[in-house]
């Protein structure tokens, strides 16, 4: 007889050699574990964080800058120099609620067109959010005359929280809208080469793996892939995205709590 779907996990469960509950209820074992904790701490010290000497740091910065130039493609290369500087934090990072909440739960209920994942919920009222957004966008150039101000202002919502993946997703979507508008303008003007270069920047942006850092601690903040169509480089998909998500249709995405 064939087993029904779902049975296999129940069968597998019965084959587990030890149950956590049995281990937890074994007093003698728990006592030995308690001693092991102390023994481990006594046997060594936490490794100290190493700071790179200035020379190596400069090499690392140069390497990161070079990589950013490569990733951003032709137009991105040209725009890096003329792009507006990332917005500086409006308030010192030390005042106000911390950016990170330590809460990784997936929202149980989501509203229409809201989405969640298992990334950390971030405080949108934290002053560190400004630094976080500025550092995330600093390596992404925008077309001439455009800035990140609108999206960073929209994401500053004291008392609200949004998951890290969706903070990044909103920045990426905004960047694509800006480049998409520029791409459309260039095509209307018949600037085929310019439009192709803008298209390259968009393709890089949709496939970009973001690795943001918590400005308060310097530690990486884990984020998932922003919910974006990875084939937005195709003209008709980009046109459709522009109609549904940019200009008057632009809105923030994610579940705000």
């Amino acid at each position: 007889m064939k087993s029904a779907p779902g049975d296999e996990l129940s069968v597998l469960r019965t084959a587990a050699r030890a149950d956590d509950r049995d281990l937890a209820s074994d007093g003698a074992l728990q006592e030995v574990l308690g001693d092991l904790c102390g023994d481990i701490m006594a046997a060594g010290r936490p490794r100290r964080r190493l700071r790179l000497p200035i020379g190596r740091n400069a090499v690392a910065v140069a390497a990161a800058f070079g990589m950013a130039l490569l990733l951003l493609g032709g137009v991105g290369l040209k725009q890096l120099q003329s792009a507006p500087r990332p917005e500086r934090p409006a308030v010192p990072v030390s005042s106000g609620p911390p950016l990170r909440t330590g809460d990784f739960r997936q929202a149980m209920t989501v509203g229409p067109s809201e989405a969640t994942d298992t990334s950390e919920w971030l405080n949108l009222g934290s002053p560190a959010l400004q630094v976080f957004m500025a550092s995330t966008t600093s390596s992404i150039s925008l077309p001439p005359g455009r800035s990140w101000a609108a999206v960073t202002r929209a994401l500053t919502l004291p008392g609200k929280r949004l998951q890290a993946t969706f903070v990044i997703a909103n920045l990426a979507r905004y960047g694509i809208c800006q480049w998409g508008g520029y791409w459309q303008d260039l095509r209307l003007r018949g600037d085929v080469q310019g439009a192709r270069a803008a298209d390259i920047v968009i393709k890089r942006l949709v496939s970009r793996r973001f690795a943001p850092v918590d400005p308060e601690t310097g530690r990486a903040i884990r984020v998932g892939w922003p919910p974006l169509d990875r084939k937005l480089g195709e003209s008709w998909r980009l046109e459709r995205f522009m109609r549904s998500s940019c200009g008057p249709a632009w809105r923030l995405v994610g579940a705000f709590r």
């Binding site: 060594g44 964080r49 809460d103 530690r219 884990r222």
Partner: peptide, 15 residues
């Protein structure tokens, strides 16, 4: 746990 102790700086918060 010896590794966790050496790298306790890297331990993420919460779950």
């Amino acid at each position: 746990f010896a590794i966790a102790w050496r790298r306790i700086h890297d331990a993420p918060p919460g779950d």
